[in-house]
Computed example of a mutant assay.
Amino acid sequence: MTRPSPTLAPVPNIFDVAKAAGVSHQTVSRVLNGDPTVRPAVRERVDEAIARLDYRPSAAARALARRRTRTIGLVVVGMPYYGPASIANAFNAAARASGWDVAIAAADDADGDAHVREVAETLLAQDPRAVVVIAPGPSVGAGLAALTSRLPVVTSVDVVPGAAAVTVDDVAGGAIATEHLAALGHDAVLHVAGPEGWTEADQRIAGWRAASERLGLRAPEVLRGDWSSASGYRIGRAIAAEGAPSAIFSANDQMALGLLAAFRDARVRVPEDVSVVGFDDIPEAAFFPPPLTTLRQDFAALGRGLMARLDDLLADREPVDAAPLTPELVVRASTGAPRPAPVAH
């Protein structure tokens, strides 16, 4: 009679160890490779799980892990624009200062979600330890949500479900711009907003609208541009033809530059006839004709904050929730008190 073959017990793998220790498989890999950033309590749990399961990593796997570079992936959607490019540059500087290499994958905001996911997959082929995402809005962010099940993810705009976020308070920025113009005596502020689908644009609208309501200002219908100076110029020409309001808040400095050029060509004086506030404080803002009042974003601090949050995630430390960074008002010559109403005779 033929005897049945003995059944072999399944060989435990790194995912079994991770489940038993209550950590990610990346953390188990870091323990195996002597990563000093792993907390002692976590290392002890992993070691106990390894001993209990009698887990023995293969020599090939250990060799591959030792060759793994200290690389962080950076997915940037909308790289041609000043904001995303500045955040990417700031994070790259902060990461390199911490001893990490950065692999960048860029996509245009008009490329579509499928292309953005393809770009992200190409980046993952480089085996990064974590990924930072700079994306314009929730539609793109949702397409990248699957990344969070594979490795730590941090984003500069809170649009990727399941990812940690380190952000700028764009709502506060919109409110600060509106409050500045109200304090000068303007009773209405027109807002030239960024394009639909961008979270920063929507949040700046929300801040402008909330401040207008709180201060009892008239809030004309929002006019949307596409972040470019050309769109600001087109909007500015239309505003000048219809009769310029006394105050305008532009959602970025490039559109504000277009507004200033349009008003100059239409012989509308800034700030005597209309005050203009921008957002970003690009390097050229101080040299606009006239120098532009704007909201300054601290991109260097944002880059450091993104890196600090990644350090926490990679070390399995409980992150300390940092408050969003509040933009700083920089007052220059493009804003002033409104002209007095003509006296009737």
Score class of each variant (00 low, 15 high):
E272I: 04
R339V: 00
P342R: 05
M307D: 13
G197K: 04
G216K: 04
L8G: 09
N89G: 15
G243F: 14
V268M: 04
W208S: 03
N92M: 12
I87N: 07
G197W: 05
V76C: 07
A125M: 06
D16G: 07
A18P: 05
I235K: 00
R3G: 10
V343G: 11
A65W: 05
A315D: 14
S246H: 00
T122K: 09
V270A: 04
P57T: 02
A211Q: 11
N252D: 12
R332Q: 14
Q126S: 10
R296G: 03
I50L: 02
L329W: 09
D47M: 01
T37A: 00
V159Q: 00
A211D: 11
V75K: 08
A315P: 01
G34N: 01
R117W: 05
P338I: 01
A315S: 15
A114Q: 13
E213H: 02
R129T: 00
D280C: 07
L151A: 06
L53E: 07
P36M: 00
V276M: 04
A165M: 14
I14N: 13
G73A: 10
E328W: 14
T167F: 00
S149M: 02
I205L: 12
V331T: 15
S98W: 13
W198Y: 13
G258D: 05
A241G: 03
I282H: 10
T155K: 02
F249W: 00
L181T: 00
R234Q: 09
P290K: 03
